[in-house]
Design a binder for these strands. Structure first.
Lengths: 355, 355
DNA sequence: CTGTTAGCGCGTTCAG
DNA sequence: CTGAACGCGCTAACAG
């Protein structure tokens, strides 16, 4: 009776091997099958006293099924992989929150990979996730490697977040970028700004950025009296940012200039730049940024708020329905952006009569 | 020759089962063992032509070993679990960066669990991580469940980040909190502030917060002319924050008051509060915060910067050495904090002569 | 140098 | 209702 190997009470120096289903079965005086059934929830297939035996034995031994072995056998690992382009971006983290919460809530566990916008790391990440047999993939990357990856060939559910990926057709959840771009631009124009620069990092081909720019330009087109342009800035090169904006302001002298930041990181850089150049918002130049961040109210920055948590959560909801075999054509869940008006775009009303 | 099941070229509607080591062996005309050896890097144990056969077959089939099965057999899953208390805290995310980078760099993959400061979720997370046989655990939680968990009993390497955990004795990497607390306090006093409140969330028992407070109070004790106190604030209750600070200011009327925020989230709340109460920094009240954040320069906020990325990275380094069998007694890696002086504590010099 | 055999921990037929 | 036997994909003994 005292030949219990790996018992919790053991104070041996050895790592105390984890208890297996076999041990439980042995100590409970039943077969592995019964324990397995018990775990699988097939309660009505077990006699009363056996059920009790198993219950108590499991509790006593602190047994916990090994998901690796389980996954190996059943094909269901209950693992979800998430690949993100840049963890430094607050948006990414915010979405991650939602995904993680949803995962946990539904008994899934999250494997996280950050690519840092690097193709190689993305490829490696995808390989890693595949090697762990994740059941699904949530992707927030440009994903040049997804297309060629065998993951999609393998029929694994993939949900895109924020960014569309060329050449593939997956579920997508994110902001309604065109609407948001229009909303932002219309607000600026409504506030009397008549020269607007859409400022974005030079990353080419990011769908969300492109669509925001589309929204921007479509509204600009509706207002012939206004001028607009798209400004690509390197966030790591502040002198160049200063120079580019200065150029803009010089060219648009006499106009009411506003900057529209394509995401939170750009907004921060622009705010810092304005501070460096001693330009006041909104008198000297207006500033509106995508992504509502914790410090936005502090800086008095007007923003387009995204429901980031919901985006992450929805992505996972979407994933779950796919995992349950939903075969409907790829969906798009586009959540609306919400304008939050603060001082950076307000308080310098210039009445515009006769459009 | 064309009976290749699961080939990449297959355009069947079925999920196309992933290629296994057996398939590779069969198609290469060798045994599984040889392929396994090949994968294991035992190159010199294989003949030239067999090596070539395997190489090409693997490439052709796009074979990738299944880590689940591998881990099941060898006991090495190359999985690292990370449990964090609060993903909303920028500090957490910053550390996460470093951990993730180090993981990837060393061929490990990260499983992330967020507990949201909830005991139950922490317990569940630990259970989940255990069920996936993670090789090590990186913990940034109060960890009331760690102690009782069978994880440590199982001899799994555990590295604590930032927070010590009562009752257990693991490796710890984080800020030198006492030094940082002293540094911060000394700076404030040096700037002429003689009434200082250390403001922290009410969470009891978080070691890092306690040690920062210790550093704070030890310096205060060295300056009898100064008064100080510890203020516990509920970050979700702004009216109460306003009230508490008002009270402080009233009590300390006539003195130069400064607030010392115990972390970045507190600093933000305090900055917002000052804005609400129309108090100017540093004239009306000084503000110094732990954690350097992206918006700190924008707000002109003085901070104690932590090397968050390095903390995360070191945690993983520490982990790796443990995984390689390092049995030395638990270490403590304490990285120094660095003072960054900005307007929130500067510019209102009050010369203090005579110590 | 190579292949055969036996498990890792588990789920699942298939007989009893 | 229960248990014995097989196999998931892989590695590690052990033979040849």
């Amino acid at each position: 009776m005292d030949s219990v190997r790996g018992s919790k009470k053991t104070v041996s120096g050895e790592p105390a091997r984890p208890v297996t289903i076999a041990q439980v079965a042995r100590e409970a005086g039943v077969s592995k099958t019964s324990v397995s059934r018990f775990l699988g929830g097939e309660l009505d297939a077990l006699s009363e006293n056996i059920r009790q035996q198993i219950t108590s034995t499991i509790a006593r031994l602190g047994y916990q099924p090994n998901q690796m072995a389980r996954g190996l056998k059943r094909g269901r690992t209950r693992l979800i992989g998430m690949v993100v382009a840049d963890m430094l971006n607050p948006y990414t983290v915010a979405v991650l929150q939602g995904v993680e919460a949803a995962c946990q809530q539904h008994g899934y566990t999250l494997i996280l990979c950050n690519t840092g916008n690097d193709e190689l790391r993305e490829r490696q990440s995808l390989a890693a996730l595949r090697s762990y047999s994740v059941e699904g993939l949530i992707v927030n990357t440009q994903g040049r490697n997804i297309e060629s990856s065998d993951l999609q060939q393998a029929g694994m559910p993939i949900v895109l977040v924020d960014r569309r990926i060329e050449g593939v057709d997956f579920d997508l959840v994110g902001l309604d970028n065109v609407q948001a771009g229009r909303l932002a631009t219309a607000h600026l124009i409504g506030q009397g700004f008549d020269a607007i620069a859409f400022v974005a990092p030079p990353l080419t081909g990011v769908s969300s950025r492109l669509m925001r720019a589309d929204g921007f330009q479509s509204v600009m087109a509706e207002h012939p009296g206004c001028v607009g342009e798209v400004l690509a800035v390197d966030l790591d090169d502040r002198p160049s940012i200063d120079a580019q904006v200065r150029l803009c302001l010089a060219r648009w002298r006499g106009r009411r200039v506003a900057l529209l930041a394509s995401n939170g990181m750009v907004a921060l850089e622009l705010a810092l730049m304005l501070q460096r150049l001693a330009l006041r918002m909104p008198q000297d130049v207006g500033l509106l940024g995508f992504d509502e961040l914790p410090w936005s109210p502090l800086a008095g920055l007007s923003t387009i708020e995204q429901q980031t948590y919901e985006i992450g959560f929805s992505a996972m909801t979407c994933m779950l329905s796919r995992l349950q075999g939903d075969k409907c054509p790829p969906r798009e869940v586009l959540l609306p952006g919400k304008l939050i008006v603060r001082n950076s775009t307000q308080g310098s009303e210039v009445r515009k009569d006769g459009d």
